[in-house]
Design a protein around this nucleic acid. Structure first.
Lengths: 146, 146
DNA sequence: GTTACTGCAAAGCTTTTGCATCCCT
DNA sequence: AGGGATGCAAAAGCTTTGCAGTAAC
């Protein structure tokens, strides 16, 4: 966690715990998952601190917020440009490092200055494919039904 | 709205109003925007009815839910496969009809059966580009900072 | 006449905020 | 010592649910 020193950012035990939890983590955890994981070892940890720390890390570019799961933010400590594939059944998210060329022609970007892009793939992971062939549409099928 | 007859779906005045509001609409409205737009003409309309109708339409494939704006669903009556470009400042969303080839190699999809995908472009629309060159990062910069 | 839908209010879930206290630097 | 961080609780924002009444079929 040495890389966070000298950035005008106080290294409290709670922050260090969150940073260590995230470092190298490929689970794309939500704030809730982070909180539940750390509250065992740090019983005084609060959700406010988790959100506060995640916001600081996000604003400084050490963490990316993912919106791939509706109504819930997931967090990714890998800030290199990449995309994501989520299982529609169990919500597992894996990284996709495909180098896709998605340049838009002028008439397509409608005068916008394009700053970034992100591809969301939807599917079924192997365990879920075997377990539940159907029954995904509960709660509203999202944009993955095409 | 004739296309919704004979589907075991009751055509109430509220539903017809929502369907007419959505038909051909390219604004990608949220439930709140739909409710506010219709409550003038239909003062008894409730949010529960808006959400109920949107869920029915989504499950039947007449509407797509978009998760591009964090913590808020947006709805798109255009269910043809396409992508979206959102202004990071004013949250305006426009359609992108680029035919991008995003097939993943076997080692990339990690055993998943891929069912769909969606590309989210982030940028600044022309009015916002002139108006506010900076000041977008408030509230957490999302996945668009790459 | 049935069945499904409406609308209200209450509750749920995630996230944010106010504020007194605490502690890292 | 000082300014930022913590943690609690309360509140906010979006969405869902329970249920009695109502209207479409």
């Amino acid at each position: 966690m040495e890389k966070f020193r000298g950035l005008g950012l106080k290294l409290t035990p709670q922050r260090i715990a969150i940073m260590q939890y995230l470092d190298g983590n490929t689970e794309h955890p939500s704030a809730d998952v982070i909180y539940k994981s750390l509250t065992k070892k740090y019983p005084t940890m609060s959700m406010a601190t988790v959100y506060n720390t995640l916001e600081v890390l996000t604003n400084r570019g050490y963490v990316r917020e993912l919106t791939i799961e509706p109504q819930k933010k997931r967090f990714d400590p890998n800030t290199k440009h990449h995309h994501h594939l989520m299982c529609m059944a169990c919500k597992k998210i894996v990284d996709v490092h495909s180098a896709v060329n998605v340049d838009l022609s002028p008439e397509e970007h409608d005068g916008f200055e394009i700053i970034g892009h992100h591809i969301e793939f939807y599917g079924l992971c192997q365990p879920c494919k075997k377990r539940e062939p159907i029954k995904l549409l509960k709660g509203g099928s999202h944009q993955w039904q095409m």
